[in-house]
Write a protein that binds this DNA or RNA. Sequence first.
DNA 1: GTGAAAGCGCTAACAA
DNA 2: TTGTTAGCGCTTTCAC
Lengths: 329, 329
Amino acid sequence: MSTRVTLKSIAEDLGLSHMTVSRALSGHGNVQSDTRRAVQERARTLGYVKSAAASAMRGRPTRIVGLLVPNLVNEFYALFADTMARACDAEALQLVIHVTNDDAAVEQQALQRLREVQAGAVVMVPAPQSDRPEPARPEDMRIVQLIRRRDQAAALLIDDAAAISAAVDHLVARGHRRIGFIGADQQLSSGRERLLAYHHALQRHQIAPDHTLTITAPPSFRMGHDGAATLLDGKVSVTALICGGFEISNGALEACLGRGTRLPNDLAFVGYGDPAAYQWIAGGITTIRLPVAEMARGAVRGLAQTLGPTSERQISDSYPAKLIIRRSS
Amino acid sequence: MSTRVTLKSIAEDLGLSHMTVSRALSGHGNVQSDTRRAVQERARTLGYVKSAAASAMRGRPTRIVGLLVPNLVNEFYALFADTMARACDAEALQLVIHVTNDDAAVEQQALQRLREVQAGAVVMVPAPQSDRPEPARPEDMRIVQLIRRRDQAAALLIDDAAAISAAVDHLVARGHRRIGFIGADQQLSSGRERLLAYHHALQRHQIAPDHTLTITAPPSFRMGHDGAATLLDGKVSVTALICGGFEISNGALEACLGRGTRLPNDLAFVGYGDPAAYQWIAGGITTIRLPVAEMARGAVRGLAQTLGPTSERQISDSYPAKLIIRRSS
DNA sequence: GTGAAAGCGCTAACAA
DNA sequence: TTGTTAGCGCTTTCAC
């Protein structure tokens, strides 16, 4: 029965005190160099691993960071998580991922769990909030909001106003006047801002806003799907559609393809986010592309600093989105 | 300055011993019911969270599980991770994800880190092994291999022989005789088995194997891409192609689409894995579909048992793949 | 029903 | 250069 290899067990094994072993392995205090070598040697052959639990108890930060995303299937989140995971490995951090399904209760659970393991920092896409009073922000865990912002704490946001504007310009230039929009509702900062950008752009072209062309609700694949279906059902006439969210975009696209809508003949389509496959669907999906990987690397860079000495630098950045024009519009 | 809320701090606060508080919160020993309520109340308002580190030090299992995947972008791994994350939340487990990039060194690093935090179990897609002696398997961490198997320990595998066979049958029925195959090389169990299935199927149809039609190497997007490019470059004549891996499939598909190959006119294409977009590309990509979500749920179900009392049940299962026929073949 | 003591593995602080 | 002591937050054991 293999009992755990600890500093003490190595120490007894070598006839030393456990402190010498500690010093030898951590490289901190002074240790005779041959003693050090002997200890290191022994530790390696015995397969010693330092207990993170014990270290954490001594009050040092845990090198655990959390990531909360609505899902991992959408390529934006998947790529973000992928990039972040690689960056974390480089910084010797452990990445704990929780999928919230955009559910505030699940989100709170996840945060709770992360506090139990004393995660030093968490990157999270805040779920749409119900009206309940939101729990106090724990002070011991640095939180960075992603994409949407719920409060004024640190955040990595997308600056997509220009891209949305460009999308409208592009569609208008193609002769469209009845341009639909499906986006998140007012509960989310991202929803508010994208809708605003869309409205402003219409205004610039002297197109009166038509609320039957604007669909907003908590964002999801299903919502995007149903929203597009509603618009296409012919009660209103739309000739173009702009999507204001990752899930929404995929859902709306599926609705179009599923019913045989020809892009761009029947509908000019502008998606949101740029999964690899968009390039190959319907001759290429016009879409709003985000610098996903840069965002993820930026997040970890910020965290790594954060986790060191208590630097109070707020990482708040805004990354520019860009309109990619392809055949679908 | 907020110092951590601990059992002791609550105890002092309430004029009790920390043991009473412990019992009150864990619900184990006997505590006067109004004392218990008072303690719980206080703990909640103070925002107490039990220290996972301290619990771990007391020798109890950590409720941390690891997942090692080559990447998180491929929809198979993404969906697997997504499903597993949700299942873990349901079991109150923390999921630590490491992206290995199919690199054995990174993989060892990740395992090491997971041992530091005393992860109870790890699900991993073993990286292709170089010839170095592989490090001893730690006894304290249960490991489940995914898709590929490196040794005889527990594994969740894909039974795709029948599906590959069906793919060949289908292609032959369509009149194809020059059927190419791109797959992982002999280093991986999955590579060996899929290649074998392909060869057997050809044999059944009395088609002599042509090694110029068979490309094997460590699997990756790039490898799939380049493999397909080579086959299509016209030195050999191929009329159909079967892919034997997730990354390979995406890479090969991109190569085809990128050079304007018309599917199935120029080439009958059979992919591996069924990302959502395959449905919409080139009128629908024929592919070998795997029960991803079931596998992930099966994995967590197994782990949850495993992490309880030391049940020695080996979770080893094989999940059947299925050929989905669409327009591309 | 409640408390006191010990110890999990580690390191900071002091002693030799 | 090396060793001893104490304590991080928790639970098991035993005493009251």
